[in-house]
Write a protein that binds this DNA or RNA. Structure first.
Lengths: 335, 335
DNA sequence: TTGTATGCGTTATCAC
DNA sequence: GTGATAACGCATACAA
């Protein structure tokens, strides 16, 4: 493998000069630069970044921890992170945590071992103390999901307002018996969406019925299971709000199983606006998050920390949007 | 940041000894080892891998290039790659190429700059000469998709046989007018699946009709478009084989739009067995690839190259399977 | 404008 | 069983 010395020899200069050319550093004569570039080309020289990174004590690599790369929600967020990263000459390392704190810790070794310069959590599993500990020692940002109480910057939407909007939409359509498909986890987003649900009911004078709250695990199957439970309830429901699109799609499937139709018999609202939300039959009404912007913002926040200009943690809230489709007011072709 | 010298000082030994303990190297007395470990703990020392990697001239990082991380097909393959990588103390770097050769080249810099020790292509976009060039200089494996003619190892299924099986299944159900939703790309898999389609027809004495072949782009929408085209054809079709599940799901949607039902009026077969294939309504008959095993095999192949034990390129073919669900023989709840 | 020399943190070779 | 030390490839402070 050819190294900087070989280039220096061929170009008839010192390694320092080659290094200066490589880094577009100041003060190297046009003539010398040309010679060096010629030598680089001639030898097909590729700088060894292992050396450079050691010397500069940086990896130019960002750790991005997410539960599952195949979750369609995250792909746009990651795209935003990556675009900003690349623009600043960083690479990103995507790592599946499988929503498992021990796996998360495993990947954090990359931070501690200086193989990455910062970390973005898309859905942290660590306890808030552990997370704060990371945040104190390394550039850290939480993105979408975040841990309440951890002293770490985050970027998110207002999940409370979003939950409220989703349910208000159903109420405005005349629904009074509205089931909720939530999750038993400790995500702030979950609790806030649930709180928004309750507040919307309250504001409209609809009595809260705890039997209308069911708990899934973000999977299609759990969405079906929860919906069946709601449909079998005494008094039933006329609408369902699921805190994720995948569960909402499962719920629609359960409705059809009972030979009922969406939205005629049961209206359904999801959350996230994944691509499948507009491929489902009927197409799903849902809350859309500005996924790409969330990703960009998170990466910019991280860069500020890496550059050292920002120390205190910041909390950024971006705008969501209700996307009304067939599952609440449209006409499904199966009706 | 504390380094190996600090540890040596505290433990009262030389850096060499600390290094030996770190690497479980032979010949260090139990007593010394204990002292060193105590110092490591006391200082909360984390080895700086930038230094180690430079010294060992390796990155312990594998580049994994795929068109799009959110493509559900790839997630299991990646899981297989990752599991084997982790077992061998390698990390993987997932990179979106967006099916763009120039982006692919961008990421290949990580190889050339020694920031990764090998590369696995899930769907190479490079020309076969460029790919061969990479294969000659760096440990390289193609996984799932591969470029014909490139002298680079690959792991795949027999797409010809799989296409044949899919279509034969439809023929066995009595179908004679079978539309194909293919793609205009240069993937070997595409051509082979198409060839399998033609061969199955031929073997059953069904005349080939070129109007029955349509071309999408792997998207849901293109699946709808192609299906509409087939349904509007003079003579129509009674079955559709799509070379990807997503397009097959789009096709089913188009069938419903025309107030026809799957499978009663039109039978549909997909390819890949993504998770949504069993969530669609009706559930999709499809060809299943052993995604996880493909990933494991690819990574093992790469490790052999990295270790230097294998030089010539190898081509490994794994078994596929036809999964029969509601879209061809089942009973859809909408019928 | 350019060269010399040092050091980043680690491992590995060679003595002892 | 252990220590001294050179080396990995590069960037940079300092000298010239």
């Amino acid at each position: 493998m050819t190294n900087i010395q070989d280039v220096a020899k061929v170009a008839g200069v010192s390694v320092a000069t080659v290094s200066r050319v490589l880094n577009n550093s100041s003060s190297v004569s046009a003539r010398t630069r040309e010679n060096v570039l010629k030598a680089i080309k001639e030898l097909n020289y590729q700088p060894n970044l292992l050396g450079r990174n050691l010397r500069r004590m940086e990896a130019r690599m960002i750790l991005v921890l997410l539960p599952n790369i195949s979750n369609p929600f995250y792909s746009r967020v990651v795209k935003g992170i990556e675009d900003v990263a690349r623009k600043n000459d960083y690479f990103i390392m995507l790592c599946n945590t499988d929503s498992d704190a021990s796996q998360e810790k495993l990947y954090l070794k990359l931070l501690k071992n200086r193989l990455s310069d910062g970390v973005i959590f898309l859905a942290p599993e660590l306890k808030k103390e552990e997370l704060s500990e990371i945040g104190i020692n390394y550039p850290t940002v939480q993105c979408c999901e975040y841990k309440e109480g951890a002293r770490v910057s985050h970027v998110t939407i207002d999940n409370y307002a979003a939950g409220y909007n989703a349910v208000k939409h159903l109420i405005d359509l005349g629904h009074k018996r509205i089931g909720l498909i939530s999750c038993r986890n400790n995500f702030v987003s979950t609790k806030q969406r649930e709180a928004g649900y309750r507040k919307a009911l309250e504001d409209s004078g609809i009595d809260f019925d705890s039997r209308l709250i069911t708990y899934g695990d973000y999977s299609f199957m759990s969405g079906m299971r929860c919906a069946r439970q709601l449909l079998d309830l005494e008094g039933g429901v006329t609408a369902i709000f699921a805190i994720s699109d995948v569960m909402a799609i499962g719920a629609m499937r359960a409705v059809k199983e009972k030979n009922m139709s969406v939205p005629k018999d049961i209206a359904v609202v999801g959350f996230d606006n994944i691509s499948f939300a507009s491929m489902s039959d009927p197409m799903l009404t849902t809350i859309s998050q500005p996924k790409y912007e969330i990703g960009c913002t998170a990466m910019n926040l991280l860069l500020e920390q890496i550059k050292g200009s920002i120390k205190e943690s910041r909390h950024i809230v971006l705008e969501h949007e209700l996307i009304v489709r067939e599952s609440t007011v449209g006409h499904s072709m199966n009706n």
